[in-house]
């Protein structure tokens, strides 16, 4: 049973990354009509950003959690201003091809300088309060041993996902954003700067990816290709969940992570493929995806 709970926890962690990434993809697709193939590369940049902050500037995990998403988000906004904005009005396919090219450039550059092996990033050991040493160590829950860092990743990701949902569904800014998704011309006529909102939206989506990268750095190590295979799984998650609803992306992301974890326990040979097989089944039964509207 210990092993089952451990795999469930791994599943929840992967699910948090799926949720954070597919959430960003959905928000970006809503505003820019672009499937951001560079999402995996930007997730990797988030992890590297945390690594650089620690090893070059001595800035630790907690600051990296704030600085890395902002830095990568700004990089994303520069990409949007200099390249993506010129694709407005063209077929969706060009957005996919352009961001694929960006992903190749970023991943190729990092591979050149850092090879393909993983760089270690330690779990933070501060603040130290009594017996607590930051997020190191674990708690014995009776039925399983819970490493604190892993529990932290799941809870923090959930909080960030729900905060994003709240921002988009319940605030005034989110209302502008949803309106601009439906009809950008009309929203502009009301005096709202839609191009700036588009840039900020791309920055937000990219920032979420970078945040996931920082969270995963102590668990999965920091590798140039850490996002390359992940993004394909996230695409499958997006196809299963549909990009119509924010909450749908969050729930689908976590659910698929858990299913993957269960598969790892009961039938490990299929753990790499289970998400893709589920995608095929969903397409056969409900082609629009679980929460999506017709595309």
């Amino acid at each position: 049973m210990q092993a089952l709970y451990a795999q469930l926890l791994v599943g929840l962690i992967n699910g948090s990354f799926y949720a954070l990434l597919s959430l960003g993809l959905a928000v970006i697709f809503g505003m820019l009509n672009i499937i951001n193939f560079a999402h995996g590369a930007l997730y990797m940049m988030g992890a590297f950003c945390a690594y650089f902050l620690l090893n070059l500037a001595g800035i630790g995990y907690w600051w990296a959690l704030i600085i890395a998403p902002i830095a990568v988000g700004v990089f994303g906004m520069i990409l949007e201003r200099t390249m993506l904005q010129w694709l407005a009005g063209l077929d969706h396919l060009y957005g996919l091809l352009l961001t694929f090219g960006i992903a190749l450039i970023v991943q190729g550059l990092f591979q050149n300088y850092f090879g393909s092996s993983g760089l270690p990033y330690a779990i933070p050991d501060y603040p130290q309060i009594g017996d607590w040493r930051g997020l190191q160590g674990g708690i014995n829950l009776g039925f399983m041993f819970l490493p604190i860092y892993r529990g932290w990743v799941v809870i923090f990701s959930l909080v960030v996902c729900l905060a994003t949902w709240f921002l988009i569904e319940k605030t005034r800014l989110g209302a502008y954003l949803r309106a601009a998704t439906e009809n950008p011309t009309l929203v502009r006529a009301f005096g709202i700067n839609v191009p700036r909102m588009i840039t900020l939206t791309y920055g937000l989506g990219v920032g979420l990816a970078a945040l996931a990268g920082v969270l995963s750095a102590p668990i999965n190590q920091v590798r140039p290709l850490m996002g390359a295979d992940l993004i394909i799984v996230v695409f499958a998650v997006v196809v299963i969940g549909g990009m119509g609803s924010i909450m749908g992306s969050i729930i689908t992301g976590f659910a698929l992570g858990v299913i993957e974890g269960l598969t790892k326990y009961f039938y490990p040979e299929a753990s790499n493929t289970v998400v893709f097989v589920l995608m095929v089944l969903v397409l056969l039964v409900k082609p629009t995806g679980l929460t999506g509207r017709a595309a």
Partner: peptide, 11 residues
């Protein structure tokens, strides 16, 4: 660098 160049050509 081949990967990088391919990416640049894409863009």
């Amino acid at each position: 660098w081949v990967t990088v160049i391919q990416g640049v050509i894409f863009v």
